[in-house]
């Protein structure tokens, strides 16, 4: 298994920090891509931050009320080693399927 850290992204308008309002996931949760992770408040607005990827949450940073700077770790995911890189997907090793059957009389001369 590999760990992937998700740092607090730039939430727009050049804001440099955000305050955690409420966590919507806990360590140990399996999350899907785009699933809301956390409610944050900036000096402009409150918002729900979606997950950038699927994976198991193993650490969260910042208790409700604490402030996190952009670029600091927010969530650490655990993902299987056999996930694809930046491009493409890991092919499934499905059981082979066939429609064609061979029929031949072999003349073994």
């Amino acid at each position: 298994m590999a760990e992937i850290s998700f740092p607090l992204p730039d939430l727009g308008e050049g804001l440099i920090e955000a305050t955690v309002l409420d966590w919507l996931v806990s360590p140990g949760d399996q999350v899907e891509r785009n699933q809301p992770l956390v409610e944050l408040e900036t000096s402009k607005s409150a918002l729900e931050l979606p997950s950038p990827q699927a994976g198991k949450v193993i650490r969260i940073h910042g208790a409700p009320g604490e402030t996190i700077n952009v670029g600091e770790p927010l969530v650490v995911f655990e993902v299987p080693d056999n996930t694809a890189g930046i491009v493409g997907t890991v092919p499934k090793d499905d059981a082979p399927k066939r429609r064609v059957r061979l029929s031949a009389v072999l003349d073994e001369d």
Partner: peptide, 13 residues
């Protein structure tokens, strides 16, 4: 798999 099997079949026939 099927295309390869068909190739084999052509050779066998």
């Amino acid at each position: 798999i099927d295309r390869i099997l068909l190739g084999i079949q052509r050779v066998l026939e």
